[in-house]
Design a protein around this nucleic acid. Structure first.
Ligand SMILES: [Mn+2]
Ligand SMILES: [Mn+2]
Ligand SMILES: [Mn+2]
Ligand SMILES: [Mn+2]
Lengths: 218, 218
DNA sequence: ATCTATTTTTAGCTTTGTCTAAATTTAATT
DNA sequence: AATTAAATTTAGACAAAGCTAAAAATAGAT
């Protein structure tokens, strides 16, 4: 497996190609900031190798082996992110870029031992689940903050958008994973929310609320 | 800097090309298990980039920038080796291969923080010195065990040959860095040594003694 | 100084992964 | 059903890094 092949598999998985859904070459190209023609070439190669099902003009989806491979890369990516935050004091907006490199290191022992060092974490710094060694996801009953009813509350457990600007915005506003958030009120006009978090009241836009996952604790 | 360029610089450094000594393309090719013609191509490229001085038919040596770059890669390699042993319980014969991959990860913060996590180690698991951030080596007054006189003793501080078979041999015979070794006798016939180590007496061949560094403690 | 063996370079080919531009297929619209 | 727009693939090119085989330069030995 080359680094490029691994990145394609990961992208296809993230676009939903793990559920035998067909992902278009255009969608992959856009996500990877490359050209559709390059994606076509890689689709053929991955298909040759039995990692994707590819039908000309119809797009690709991951085979069982393809899913397994993608999950192992995602597992590595997220474990490294945890390592960077927990052991090397990186902030959650700094880890992704480095993890993009580290995820391609080939050593099964390395990743097993890293998992152990980190005490077998279930989620990465952005709240994304870490697949187990045998490719299982620990699902969690989580909802977008924008979708829970007024007066209900939950613990913030993840972000949907994990772009650097969004993460920095959250830091600036002291919104962190683990915080308990209660929805006090919704504004019909712009869908903004009045919330209570860690004792304080604040107002957040719909765009923010629609990118925060909470686990309702009722 | 590509991974390949980095590997060439590291190899040239290890062959002595840091002291403006000319290293032949053949020597580099042999070390890297590649062909001389490939080395020539890379020599031209690295020369273009100002990392080596290259004179056709005469070989290459590292420029100042080339040395600095090589040292930073060696620094990363050795710090990762320490990490693998100290934090992930790798044995000293397992680390090199993985470090060969990890040394190419690009993140200054990562390596600084790793250094800190490891408490700024001065030597790697094989006793090789770790260059500082600004490319300085901490020299150590060490000698090969085969070259110290009878009845003198020293602490084992490093290995010259760090091949897997040699390291495993040392493990099997309980010869470890940190052990104090005293030379009791030399056999003229085959240059083997009778030594005392950690209370026990044993005999070791010249080949072993010529690959162990000791720091004399008198 | 000449010849020869060795080293080194050059020339040309290969693979991987990318691109552009042209051709083709599919999908949408009349 | 025909036309058009959009998506997708093909064809051909390129850069990086490697290889083989042939040519050129160097070094060693007479
Ligand atoms: Mn990430
Ligand atoms: Mn990646
Ligand atoms: Mn090493
Ligand atoms: Mn390397």
């Amino acid at each position: 497996m080359t680094r490029s092949e691994e990145n394609y598999l990961k992208t296809i998985f993230h676009l939903g190609g793990g559920d035998s859904k067909s992902i278009t070459t255009n969608a992959i190209a856009e996500q990877m900031e490359t050209k559709p023609s390059s994606v076509t070439d890689m689709a053929k190669k991955l298909s040759e190798k039995g990692l994707v099902d590819y039908v000309r003009y119809q797009g690709v989806s991951l085979t069982e082996v393809g899913v397994k491979t993608a999950l192992s890369i995602i597992r590595k990516h997220r474990l490294w992110e945890v390592f960077l935050v927990k052991k090397l004091d990186f902030t959650w907006d700094e880890v992704h870029e480095v993890a993009e490199q580290l995820e391609h290191i080939k050593s099964e022992k390395l990743i097993d031992k890293l998992d152990e060092l980190l005490d077998f974490p279930k989620y990465d710094p952005h709240g994304d689940p870490i697949p187990t060694k045998d490719g299982k996801f620990q699902e969690r009953d989580e909802k977008l903050l924008s979708e829970i009813p007024i007066n209900s509350q939950g613990v913030c457990v993840g972000v949907k958008d994990s772009s650097v600007p969004f993460l920095k915005f959250l830091d600036k506003n002291k919104i962190a994973l683990g915080n308990t958030i209660k929805v006090l009120d919704k504004e019909d006009f712009d869908n903004s929310l009045r919330i209570q978090m860690e004792g304080k009241e604040m107002r957040i836009s719909h765009q923010i609320a629609a990118n925060l996952y909470v686990k309702k604790n009722d």
